[in-house]
Nucleic acid binder design. Sequence first.
DNA 1: TTGACATATTCTGATATGGACATATATCGT
DNA 2: ACGATATATGTCCATATCAGAATATGTCAA
Lengths: 116, 116
Amino acid sequence: MARAATTSDAFNAVAEPQRREILMLLKGRERPVNELARALRITQPRTSKHLRVLREVGLVRVREAGQQRLYALDARGLQPVHEWVVGFEQFWNESLDRLNEYVKKLQEEEPDVSTK
Amino acid sequence: MARAATTSDAFNAVAEPQRREILMLLKGRERPVNELARALRITQPRTSKHLRVLREVGLVRVREAGQQRLYALDARGLQPVHEWVVGFEQFWNESLDRLNEYVKKLQEEEPDVSTK
DNA sequence: TTGACATATTCTGATATGGACATATATCGT
DNA sequence: ACGATATATGTCCATATCAGAATATGTCAA
């Protein structure tokens, strides 16, 4: 079989650094494609493609404004990502404790690790 | 140029549904590879590959336990994801308002939309 | 209509990726 | 040492994906 389609949900849309940048630029105000392209220092076609992905997963909206198309953030699609990652919040501090346990266990298993 | 490497940070590691599942299964307790494979209903090699990605981005730790290798969650790597997405929290409700504005604008531009 | 400007799409190429399968490696019990 | 078990890795395939370049589409102004 082949690679699974990935640009079909918010998790994947947001996995692309430039798409994350676009979303951040759209906080606060809508912007035309060229402005985004300039800000990201990438070509206009590339920008349009990223915007298409973001559009398809519903993270941005477009509005016609004369010859420009103004893209605006629609952050609601990020909620699933937020919910998922929040489910791990309680484990961050815990992770430190577990790391200590882990290191301790390793040392017990290899008490001569420092003399190798 | 070519496609950018993608399995090199937490955002991408987490973009894969099965890897998300693995991380969820590791909440609470560490597990051997076969147990994860069974739970996900995928082959053992595939599971090992996902675990490798998760290991490389630091989201899991391994511990040798006899002939098994026990994988444990290390959720700290999810913090950047959390921080990024939390930066959009304030826009979710706002998004509803903006959607209304947006629809209103569309209707103003095409006042005969319902008679088409 | 024509030209300038803004944006989207198509084509092509290089590479990353997920998956199946076979195989290598390592550990344990006997 | 040997077989069984557990895990990791390598190979191969089909496809997704990012990127550049060229081109198509659409809008405005004169």
